[in-house]
Design a protein around this nucleic acid. Structure first.
Length: 646
RNA sequence: GCCGAUGUAGCUCAGGGGUAGAGCGCGUCCUUGGUAAGGACGAGGUCAUGGGUUCAAAUCCCAUCAUUGGCUCCA
């Protein structure tokens, strides 16, 4: 019996039935066969060593394929388990999947302890086992036998997993002296793993539920070449240099104080200037887009949040109410601006002619976050949202939504954020209880978002179960220096709050109607946005955002006076400059200015002072020749205008 | 909140049961310079906090606090 194998380039070849992907690879070239980690057969990733019995499309997966990498990391998790089993008798295994950068295994060590000091010996053992080139052998096994195996081992985690599997679909994988419940696929043998690095150790709850027992999670990563591990570690190191916490400190942008409280950032002058520029930039864009400014207080009466539904949902997990000393009133620190904005809408009778009504506010909100979750400026307890709420008719929703998408994209483009992910977050179809509002409204909102996103031509991913409890949303996600995903901009459709606050407008038919609300924040929060911006540009902000744009470097003390004259002139042009008056050589002043990422340096000495000029040096680019102060100012302002696209 | 790690000068970090260390930064003085580090001298620390062990603790032990890597959560 022969079968036909179709390769990705469309080439068809005939092989005897039962041929393996590895055989096919060997047929193509020995070199390829040495690099095949797994195979995709009719769209399913499987072991390269399994027989293929029917005509099939196959793709051979190597290290250059994401699926090849994750197969190897999955196999690496098994290898880690085998090594752990060697050192920690009685260890129980939970789950050990591949992840984006490597893999982990969750284990229950019983009374034994493990720490990162043990990593070296575990890594060595893994490499030793890898060198044995043990094959990963797949065993199809009956549910009963699977259960018996783990009953004997006393591993309740695997038993729980098997319990949920259907008989006939269960497989074990065995390599060397280790057998694990596993769907697969795996690499042919452990020999592909040439470099191993265990990266961290952490607690993780069994099945991700904090009510369950906490297991020990060991993270690691492996590579087929030692060199690649080295490169990866260097990359990590580079990324850490961009960490906004480090750069924020170095550049004097923000700080924290124990006395003020954890998760409550303090903006230093330079950071405040940066943030102010961002705010002004957005304010201008919003003004053009028809937003109206509003201002609301930092606290709100408890009833406000009872009405909005937030009290029932988050009351217990918020900063607790503030009580007035004599009247016994209760106020909450505002965790969001929308209830206040609803009351602004309600302040006057509204006509359909007023809609869409767009209320914008840089509103500072306070949310209780668990202490362990706080992180630099990306996860804080007090932050300022670039918030706005659009009140519109149901017919206007899609159009307004699209306009907001345009605004977000304009902002991202201006700041050259290009590698964001647009994520449409919908309800969890399994768990309707989590959400408030009618099915009808949810369906309307979800449809409006999907249509708006499609019409805007945006690439997006859909995540079920990620919606806010009151409505679906479109989030713009970006990654930070260490690869973590953060939500920046967000746009959310809400049919719920207008109901709860009984918002109404008079339609053209002279009867009352309920408006729809769109919550939106292009930056998300100023804190998080600045954090991501810092990491994105490694502290080299666009010129218009730089807290200090120009440093004037007198060649010697004798020219400090002329430097001050230049400074005054630049101030008149609204250029933020300062003078390096230290008694240092100009080479030193240049170096320091370069290191602190000063966009422009103006060297002034005898020649410049007598001609009323400056010698211009651009950060990272070097000498730009001599300019008059006026022409330099023009140059800077032109550059800024070009960046802002005005 | 839970599990792990860390906490020494303004910053980055070394050290380690018996006078507290380096580099950078900072200050003073010398030098007055031309496109990425001039020189000399100096100031700065109850070694996170509180207990314990010890003749003696920054060092060992315990607790607390903070920071940090994860987990859970995230309007």
């Amino acid at each position: 019996m022969e079968i036909q194998i179709t390769l990705p380039d469309g080439k068809k070849k005939t092989y005897p039935k039962g041929v393996t992907a590895l055989d096919v690879a060997k047929d193509i070239s020995e070199g390829l066969a040495r690099n095949v980690l797994a195979a995709k057969v009719d769209g399913n990733v499987m072991d390269a060593t399994l027989p293929i019995n029917d005509d099939a499309d196959i793709t051979l997966l190597t290290w250059s394929d994401d699926e090849g990498k994750s197969t190897m990391w999955h196999s690496s998790a098994h290898l880690l388990a085998e090594a752990l089993q060697h050192f920690y008798p009685g260890i129980k295994f939970a789950i050990g999947p591949p992840i984006e950068n490597g893999f982990y295994y969750d284990v229950d060590l019983g009374n034994q302890q493990i720490s990162d000091k043990d990593f070296a010996k575990i890594e060595q053992k893994m490499l030793e086992l890898a060198r044995e080139k043990n094959t990963y052998i797949r065993h199809e096994i009956s549910k009963k036998d699977a259960l018996d195996y783990y009953k004997k081992k006393g591993d309740e985690y695997k038993l729980e997993l098997i319990d949920e599997l259907e008989d006939g679909t269960i497989s074990f994988y065995e390599q060397g002296g280790f057998t694990d419940l596993c769907r697969g696929p795996h690499i042919p043998n452990t020999g592909f793993i040439k470099a191993v690095k265990l990266t961290s150790i952490a607690g993780a709850y069994w099945r991700g539920d904090e009510k369950n027992k906490q297991l020990t999670r060991i993270y690691g990563i492996t590579f087929p070449k030692q060199k690649e591990l080295k490169e990866y570690l260097e990359l990590l190191e580079e990324a850490q240099k961009r960490d906004h916490r480090k750069l924020g400190k170095e550049m004097g942008l923000f700080t924290f104080s124990q006395k003020v409280g954890m998760g409550l950032p303090l903006w230093l002058p330079k950071g405040a200037i940066l943030r102010e520029r961002l705010e002004n930039f957005l304010k201008l864009a919003q003004k053009k887009a028809g937003y109206l400014p509003v201002i609301t207080p930092h606290i709100g009466g408890k009833e406000l949040y009872v009405t909005s539904g937030h009290y029932a949902k988050y009351g217990k997990d918020s900063f607790q109410p503030i009580h007035t000393p004599h009247e016994g009133e209760e106020y909450l620190l505002k965790p969001m601006n929308c209830p206040h904005h609803c009351e602004l809408f309600n302040a006057e009778p509204r006509s359909y002619k007023d809609l869409p009504l767009r209320f914008a506010e840089f509103g500072t909100v306070y949310r209780y976050e668990q202490s362990g979750e706080l992180h630099g400026l990306t996860r804080v307890r007090g932050f300022t949202q670039d918030d706005a709420h659009i009140f519109c008719t149901p017919e206007q929703v899609k159009e307004e939504f699209k306009k907001v998408i345009d605004l977000v994209l304009y902002i991202f483009k201006t700041l050259s954020f290009d590698n964001f992910i647009a994520q449409v977050s919908l309800r969890d179809p399994e768990d309707r209880e989590k959400y408030i509002g009618s099915n009808e409204n949810w369906r309307k909102a979800e449809t409006a978002i999907k249509e708006a996103v499609e019409e805007a031509g945006l690439d997006f991913v859909v995540e079920e179960g990620e919606a806010a409890f009151y409505g679906p949303k479109l989030d713009f996600m970006v990654r930070d220096a260490i690869g973590r995903k953060w939500q920046l901009g967000t746009i959310q459709v809400d049919y719920n709050l207008p109901d709860r606050f009984e918002l109404e407008y008079v339609g053209s038919d002279n009867s009352k109607h309920r408006p729809v609300m769109i919550h939106r924040a292009p930056f998300g929060s100023m804190e998080r946005f600045v954090a991501v911006l810092i990491e994105h540009c490694a502290g080299k902000f666009p010129l218009w955002l730089m807290p200090d744009q120009v440093k004037i470097l007198p060649v010697s003390d004798k020219f400090n006076k002329y430097a001050q004259e230049v400074l005054n002139k630049l101030n008149n042009y609204d250029i933020r400059a300062l003078v390096d008056e230290r008694s240092e050589k100009v080479g030193r002043k240049i170096r320091d200015a370069e290191v602190e990422k000063m966009p422009y340096m103006l060297i002034v000495g005898d020649e410049e002072a007598s001609n009323g000029t400056v010698s211009v040096r651009k950060q990272g680019e070097g000498d730009q020749g001599t300019h008059t102060v006026d022409s330099f100012a023009e140059l800077v302002n032109n550059e800024i205008e070009a960046l802002l696209g005005n």
